[in-house]
Write a protein that binds this DNA or RNA. Structure first.
Lengths: 350, 350
DNA sequence: CTGAAAGCGCTTACAG
DNA sequence: CTGAAAGCGCTTACAG
């Protein structure tokens, strides 16, 4: 009884004195509508507070007015930031955003990407955040009716915005190298475990490149598997301390892993930079406090930027220009966890 | 061309040799379907990989197969945890979850709750996470066709799960009191600013009650306004240090605010527990590392529990038993930021 | 530039 | 227990 009956396109048609069909076209800014009719419809719709029923639109072959944000997890700092920034853009464009967390589970990943019709039925487009897709999945997405944009992905046939991960890792590692360290370990996702790992691999590549430029080689024992969580970093560091020899400096593929590493260090009576220098990537809000050196990346910006790209594609369906790839800037931030290797002086002749 | 045409109810009807209408009923487990027909339909649907079109269902007066999670923000640790846990429950129940972040903005809040028809059109139910609603909004939601459940809310006419905030704050404060502190400050959301504040108010009440039980009064100057962010805690603590006298102990309404307080302390050359004891509420993953004493609450559990409650209501529309309110347990965790007040000994005669 | 008609895939009374 | 019919609110060809 307390139900307010929503105005239908019928109501708008009656009020504007035009046909349902003209109203439909006018509302969607389709061609072949006189300015006069357009105004009439706009006024009537305005007066009635009319908004098309998404279910009806969808069923009749139109759009859903919704997009999906798909991410490996929704809890990690990076994802939560990017998701909210994107959600804001979508909401401001009148789009609903459906959240799909892959929960770091291959089974969920498979379920989502093996049947795109389920997605297509519910949304007009998807925003992928750091999702590892194989060739087949990329092809399927491209071939689908879904508009796609992504954050932090590579070699994808749709709009993407990210940072140069390899370069960021190179910056971090070079900072360590410049401080006289040459015995380095890296905390990164070493093997495919079902969850997003591509980003970490690129960072690992940047680490490797930095070492190679100094004619140093990466010791396999000093590449420790760690996911992007505090727990992951902690486990990795614990393993490093327990079973392998401690290097003089460590590059963690992200700040949260670095926090975990800091925890493990403390649990073993060690600390940074005293016993080991440590640097991450992200500039997480806690990093300042922890004194963690890092390479900062703009996270909310990436989410918002990619979301805007997607919205644009959605609004201009016919304009099918080439996909664009954008790289946002990163910046090395030196804090307290990295310092010059003992006994090393800056006396290079360059 | 690469589009797989999804099976329709028509296909299932043909394959099972029954009418579209019987199929519809069988699929939804409605009464008046013979076991035989039921099996026939189930088999056919299975074989076809049939899943009802949500748009069509919705339009025909059925359900949307979607729920909305509404939260003041999606980035803060608590919300990100609760959201993901709830999303998992919904996904496993075959429901899409639409994320609605109020972005801590009254304007967004108003837009969402002033027009429930927009929501009703898109979802079958909503899960509210710590959303401050006024009486009118609560009434409107109850009167709507939406099923509602919530996390951390009070006096609501629908299922809710939360913790006893007043008691948690009382525990934290009593811990401080028990350590000999009597000059206490509290960091809490002091005034309504448009974003969620009810939880903080309850915690403030618990703080006040603990003091009153010891015949102490709350000094207005030592109630510092702070939202639930690191930045908020930092600002509050900075203000406390700069403009007021430093107490011997502080209760922060949540761990993130406590982290911010720790930052501010450090920025002023102070530290905890040396210069001031500090306790929060949450047991954020970083709290262990920070050595922060706190009162732990189960966050993901609250989100999952409330989501399950909502799913149940959705599945049993007719069963309209009374709303249930659940309180999950909290636990005081003593770490390093709280210690006995100097010069105080445990020599009370009780 | 505009409108009448069909149809999207379901659900809901209503007959049987 | 089962089915034929109408209709949910739109969009899409197709005529005018």
């Amino acid at each position: 009884m307390a139900r307010t009956q929503r105005a239908t396109i019928q109501d708008v048609a009656v009020l504007s004195g035009l046909s349902i069909c003209t109203v439909s076209r006018a509302l969607r800014n389709l061609p072949n509508v006189s300015d006069h009719a357009h105004r009439l419809v706009a006024d009537a719709a305005e007066k009635l507070g009319y908004k098309a029923s998404s279910a009806a639109s969808r069923l009749a072959g139109g759009t859903t007015g919704a997009v999906a944000i798909i991410a490996p997890t929704a809890t990690a700092w990076f994802f939560a930031q990017a998701v909210e920034a994107a959600e804001e853009v979508f909401a401001d464009s009148g789009l609903d955003t459906i959240l799909v967390s892959l929960r770091n589970k291959p089974s969920v990943h498979r379920k989502v990407f093996s049947d795109l019709t389920a997605l297509t039925q519910r949304v007009d487009g998807v925003l992928l955040i750091n999702v590892d897709l194989d060739e087949t999945e990329i092809q399927a997405l491209s071939a689908s009716d879904l508009r796609v944009a992504s954050v932090g992905m590579h070699d994808v046939p749709w709009d993407n915005v990210g940072i140069d991960n390899e370069d960021a890792a190179w910056q971090a590692t070079s900072h360590l190298l410049g401080l006289g360290h040459w015995n380095l370990a890296v905390l990164a996702a070493r093997e495919k475990r079902g969850y997003s790992v591509a980003t970490s691999q690129q960072r690992l590549a940047g680490f490797t490149r930095a070492l190679e430029e100094q004619h140093l080689t990466v010791h396999p024992d000093l590449v420790i598997d760690a996911d992007s969580s505090i727990e992951g970093g902690r486990r990795a560091m614990t393993e490093l301390i327990a079973h392998r020899s401690l290097p003089t400096a460590i590059f963690a593929h992200c700040d949260e892993a670095a926090f975990g590493a800091l925890m493990a260090l403390r649990e073993h009576g060690l600390s940074s930079p005293k016993d080991v220098s440590l640097i991450g990537i992200d500039d997480h809000p806690m990093s300042w406090f922890m004194g963690l050196s890092t390479v900062a990346q703009p996270v909310a910006d990436q989410g918002a930027f990619a979301a805007n790209l997607l919205v644009e594609r959605l609004q201009n369906p016919e304009a099918s220009h080439e996909p664009t790839h954008h790289l946002l800037n990163t910046k090395l931030i030196e804090r307290k966890t990295t310092r010059r290797k003992r006994g090393t002086e800056k006396h290079k002749h360059d």
